[in-house]
Design a protein around this nucleic acid. Structure first.
Length: 612
RNA sequence: GGUCCCUUAGCUCAACUGGAUAGAGCAGCUGCCUUCUAAGCAGCAGGUUUCAGGUUCGAGUCCUGAAGGGAUCACCA
């Protein structure tokens, strides 16, 4: 199962013997041979010509001869330009398949005893989770699973932004307009309930603003600051200032915030009540998404952590004080800007809190590595954060990584809450399961299941479609989310992969795997060899996904494997193959394929149904 | 304007980190269900990898420049 590694070690020995040159694994490229050539593994020999002092084909020929002679597992070889294609003996493939039974989780790496923190999701508490969060959560979750396989002790955490002006807006609107209504009384999911009051606030603000625009004060502001802009453009750009300077309702919201910071009991109680509604709602959404966390940091508890940071920075002369009392760090020597870390009024800014949180986490966990799953619009922020930590000589800084992912767009453009084009996570999940139900009704394969079993299967299929659709795309790419495509169940989709698994389970139910004859006399077909070789490359794929922080590699692997299996299923009989050995071999091959498919999907947070 | 990211088939994406003739799916067209689940398989068609140079045995991948799109450059979070 470590075939490629084994071939590399052969090559290393051979090159040493023939050309007296020391190679390491990384110098050698071994890959699966493309379809239109004979053989299963290909060695790229171009790089060896430097010290073989022969043409690429000659070098390949020479290596091939010797490999074949020395290794009984190499049946034959062929040379095409600088590529050496190896055709392996049947015994080699039999041994590959047998090896799975000895090491059923061969892709799992030994424990490293190192803590790896993965921070993801990071919602605000003033509105429900949306499509963008789903991408974030899927990435974070799946990186966690992958790193766990790589041998880390993974600690999954989220930062909840539970304080600030946003939640105060919801609180204010609820206080003024809700008349004591609750999520229970209205029958609304509780995070949506709180979000609705946030929307209500913004509506009130918009009304107020519109009236003000036509008032004398509004006219004056336009005269004074509008310059050569159109009225519309000016008022659009002025809205923040309006909120902070003129708005009555805005003033009230800020008073809420001030009272909160001063520990006003009434406001604190309201704040707690509304946040608890939100948490209850998030809990449901997380559960439906199939994710959980090992810890949660609330900003209300971490936003003061900045103080110790500032002290440390001033002591180390990393930070300096301006005349007005604000504290800064100068990062111009590493090509960045100056950055404030403490306001003149002594309050901390966002980055200060991040530094504090990192230090706190290190104190608690002694983590070796940490990933922040955060959108790419914050790339600069994290560059600055890491540089500051470096200047502060924090020991863990080299293990920190910002897993930056592109925004999720709709076919109609950006998601904008003001324009009501935000795709809500809960609504989306419902839709996608509903779509699975329609598809299942059409083909009727699960009619005989009871209601619970059926809804379980439909949930797995619908969520599988949605999750796969999002996770198969390279994280750093901005993606277009087409709702129609996200519910597709055919082609390069989650259900396509689930279907391969279900087909295998259906076969395995008809027989007893443990009672099969030995398969060592079976002569494997080209396709069987191809699948076996591909199964073996699962470890490599996981490692690469871990190294590049890219779960989409696993998604593509799973798709490719499922595709190979579907083809195999059509081209070969399994249960009624010609010989006992063939039946046994194919059953075991199918069994291992199913196990690896399920594992690959598990790493992506996708469950397999047994029927569909 | 500075910095960073993206650009591959009509659309959505791959390409094992520099390897062979750039692959899938969707959409379109053709076949295949009395044989292990047709959410499947096989086939047709679709490409100057945005453009111009460079590096080398070899470039979608690396370098330089250009064009188009995006992000960021707050005493916001």
């Amino acid at each position: 199962m470590k075939a490629e590694k084994q071939i590399k070690s052969w090559v290393i020995d051979l090159v040493k013997e023939l050309y007296q040159h020391e190679l390491v694994d990384q110098d050698i490229t071994v890959k699966q041979t493309p379809k239109n050539f004979v053989g299963q593994y290909t060695i790229v020999v171009f790089p060896f010509t430097r010290f073989s002092k022969k043409s690429p084909p000659q070098t390949a020929e020479e290596l091939g001869e010797k490999l074949k002679l020395d290794n009984p597992l190499v049946k034959d070889f062929s040379v095409e330009k600088g590529f050496l294609n190896l055709d392996m003996e049947d015994a080699f493939w039999i041994a590959q398949l047998q090896a799975f039974a000895k090491n059923p989780e061969f892709w799992r790496k030994p424990k490293k005893n190192e803590t790896f923190i993965v921070e993801f999701s990071s919602p605000n508490t003033n509105k429900p989770l949306h499509l963008g969060h789903i991408r974030n959560i899927l990435l974070g979750w799946s990186m966690s699973q992958i790193l766990e396989i790589e041998g880390y002790d993974v600690f999954k955490t989220q930062v909840v932004n539970d304080r600030g002006i946003a939640i105060c807006k919801s609180m204010l609107a609820w206080n003024q307009f809700a008349d004591g209504k609750t999520p229970e009384s209205e029958g609304i999911k509780s995070d949506h309930f709180v979000g609705d009051w946030y929307v209500k606030f913004n509506q009130e603000l918009a009304n107020e603003y519109e009236q003000w625009q036509n008032s004398n004060e509004g006219e004056e502001a336009f005269e004074e600051h509008g310059k050569d802009q159109s009225k519309d453009a000016f008022f659009k750009s002025y809205s923040n200032k309006y909120f902070n300077i003129h708005s009555a309702i805005g003033k009230q919201a800020r008073e809420y915030l001030l009272k909160w910071e001063n520990g006003d009991p009434e406001i604190k109680a309201l704040w707690e009540k509304m946040n608890n509604w939100v948490y209850a709602g998030f809990e449901t959404t997380y559960k439906n998404l199939g994710v959980s966390f090992d810890g949660t940091d609330y900003e209300s508890q971490t936003y003061l952590l900045g103080k110790s940071v500032v002290e440390k920075g001033l002591q180390a002369d990393t930070f300096y004080k301006e005349a007005d009392g604000s504290i800064w760090v100068n990062l111009e020597d590493v090509g960045l800007d100056k950055k404030i870390v403490l306001r003149s009024d002594g309050t901390s800014v966002y980055i200060t809190q991040d530094i504090g949180t990192a230090m706190e986490r290190y104190k608690d966990q002694k983590f070796k590595k940490m990933i922040y799953v955060v959108g790419d619009e914050q790339e600069y922020h994290f560059k600055v954060l890491f540089e500051i930590l470096k200047k502060l000589d924090e020991p863990y800084v080299d293990g920190m990584y910002h897993l930056s992912y592109g925004m999720v767009d709709l076919p109609t453009g950006k998601m904008k809450s003001r324009e009501g084009t935000v795709v809500d996570a809960d609504v989306l999940m419902e839709e996608v399961v509903e779509e699975a139900r329609k598809a299942a009704e059409e083909n009727g394969a699960i009619e005989d299941l009871n209601t619970d079993e059926k809804s379980d299967v439909l949930r797995k299929i619908g969520m599988g479609a949605l999750k796969f659709f999002m996770i198969k795309i390279n994280p750093k790419k901005r993606m277009v989310f087409d709702p129609k495509q996200s519910v597709d169940m055919q082609g390069q989709t989650g259900p396509y992969i689930q279907n391969a698994y279900v087909r295998i389970q259906s076969i395995l139910r008809k027989t007893n795997l443990a009672e099969q004859a030995p398969f060592d006399t079976h002569v494997p077909t080209d396709l069987e060899k191809e699948i076996l070789a591909y199964l073996g490359s699962f470890s490599k794929t996981i490692s690469m996904a871990a190294d590049t922080n890219d779960p989409s590699l696993i998604a593509n692997y799973a798709y490719q494997l499922a595709k190979n299996f579907h083809r195999f299923y059509h081209e070969h009989r399994i249960l009624n193959a010609d010989t006992e050995a063939a039946i046994s071999f194919r059953l075991e091959l199918s069994n291992r394929t199913a196990i690896i498919l399920a594992e690959a999907m598990r790493l992506l947070g996708i469950e397999m149904p047994e029927r569909m």
